[in-house]
Design a protein around this nucleic acid. Structure first.
Lengths: 331, 331
DNA sequence: CTGAAAGCGCTTACAG
DNA sequence: CTGAAAGCGCTTACAG
């Protein structure tokens, strides 16, 4: 910028004015500055610019997620990108892999870059004491969870209701021996989904066989192996499966097909998966709307950044079971 | 930082030393500074820090991609994240949707934040004159393409060879009437894939029916409609399909199944898709390794950032057809 | 319409 | 071991 000013023979302030398109610069000077900018290929430094600006519109927000390679999260990210772009805002993102330490590190990275706000899908219940300290005054929107400690806006799918409906759907089709596979209950969304499953079973006076309830964090391939093992380990086997997450659902579909029992064991998954309509039988699911989740999260965040100071708001997106065949198999 | 120094009763420089873990600070002062840091919840401002540092290790790189919601790109992003994390580096990313103007805008955003380097999957041939100007001295690695104008490192899949092998595979299974569906030829990778298709057809002395060659940028649902239309519009129809991209492959699989001809029309896709092993018939593909692409791109970029000044390097990842059934159907 | 000064939050280069 | 000064690239607040 200094060089630009020198070449154009003007002051720094005049260069600044031209760059920012402020009015009140004579055409002559403006032209000279523009020429110098082109000549030097000058690009203003966004970091320095923001250093002195306090009331400037937000220039970046941070998104701490679990795994971008999971289509659920990448779809959310896409939704965020779109919503943020309308405000000329860049989304910084990173994967925590469900590791709280890594999540803390990510959030620290975002904060140290002075993001205007944060959107977080927590690894476990919420932020953890360290991250909570770090975040301090920065607005946060929690996605797909409800941390106990934090007073923030929230947008999430109806985990409990979805799992309840899925289980009820299987029960309505005559099932009593239903297995549940999903993330660890320490993850907020996973906990509610298990609760929903148990509640629906209890409401129908069905006993939950604990050998058929399996939770943890695994890849689709690991889930396939685990589910295969559970379905073969005992003499009796469940007549239906509830899978609480897309990677689990993929593993289950593969397991059922590999065992050749996909037409005999009913199955419903939480969250949709690719090709679920083409597989035979089609995979019945309780779909989420990740793009919408991202958009709503962005709206809530920007409202805060615009100064809105109302009480924390909670948006819960509900959905309806998509029947494709696998969930309608009878025992 | 000023406040921290005041509370601790030391100079700014001493605070700086403690924050950066420099040696040569008495335990007494270090303790006072740490206490003040905790009390004020002070976090150093990464932007200001980098402003004065010139030889500091890179703190961020930019990744301009086409669409994070496409699993191919999100897998690359994940690979980049991992590789960058080892160097304490954040990956900034954004989707261009194949729009050159949006890509320019993205790159400008990255450069204005002074990323140390750039990884780009270009919307079309390369960078476009504007972006090329903007990028200026910043190292760039091109992913899945080879821009004519730019002298940069490159890592990509063997588009030509893959498409050639796919087509050859179908021909070897007795096909002569082969349709090709894929991205617009103006996209570098898509162009090479069409070339590979045509070359394999020519090598086997098969005529390419141009009514069965369709290119453009569409969603999976749009591709399904387009492919359905092409397969029904004329009396004769191709006995085999080559789809040049994952979204096209998804559309084709759906189209074939919806028409009930998935067992009669052969099909191979470029790039793997989810559940391709579970669908009947299994979807044969020429898989890419997006995670590896990301890792290699990061390695190439960091080598430049470390000062390596050798000639531009080109890494081409080859692969082998995965036979799952659909590609082995005979006419 | 234009510019000189002070400042954003940090660091480097130097002096003690 | 510690700090005062100057600077990074920009902006704000003011004066002319």
């Amino acid at each position: 910028m200094h060089d630009v000013a020198q070449i154009a023979g003007v002051s720094l302030k005049t260069v600044s004015r031209v760059i920012n398109g402020e009015s009140g610069v004579s055409d002559d000077l403006a032209a000279r500055v523009s020429a110098a900018v082109d000549q030097l290929r000058y690009r203003p430094d966004e970091r320095a610019r923001n250093l002195r600006q306090f009331d400037a519109p937000p220039t970046s927000i941070g998104f701490a997620l679990v795994d971008v390679a999971n289509p659920f999260f990448s779809a959310i990210l896409r939704g965020l990108e779109e919503a943020a772009r309308e405000r000329n805002c860049l989304v910084l993102s990173g994967s925590s892999d469900g590791d709280p330490a890594r999540q803390d590190q990510l959030i620290e990275t975002f904060i140290s870059r002075r993001v205007a706000g944060l959107i977080v899908v927590p690894s476990s219940g919420g932020l953890g004491p360290i991250a909570a300290e770090i975040v301090h005054g920065t607005p946060v929107v929690f996605l797909d969870c409800e941390p106990a400690q934090h007073d923030s806006d929230i947008v999430r799918t109806d985990h409990f209701g979805g799992a309840f409906a899925m289980t009820q759907h299987l029960i309505a089709h005559g099932h009593g021996d239903i297995a549940f596979f999903g993330d660890d209950a320490s993850v907020f969304s996973a906990g509610l989904r298990i609760d929903g499953f148990r509640a629906a079973m209890a409401a129908a006076r069905r006993r939950v066989d604990e050998r058929w309830v399996l939770t943890g964090r695994h890849t689709p391939a690991e889930w396939q192996a685990l589910i295969t093992e559970r379905l073969t380990s005992s003499r009796r086997r469940p007549t239906a499966l509830v899978t609480a997450q897309n990677f689990v659902t993929m593993g289950a579909v593969r397991a059922l097909h590999a065992m050749g029992i996909e037409q005999r064991v009913a199955h419903i998954g939480f969250d949709d998966i690719e090709m679920s309509d083409v597989v035979r039988p089609g995979v019945s699911v309780y779909p989420q709307d990740p793009t919408r989740l991202g958009q709503v999260a962005c709206e809530l965040l920007f409202r805060r950044l615009d100064g809105w100071a109302g009480p924390p708001e909670r948006t819960i997106l509900t959905s309806t079971i998509v029947e494709r065949g696998s969930g309608e198999i009878r025992p």
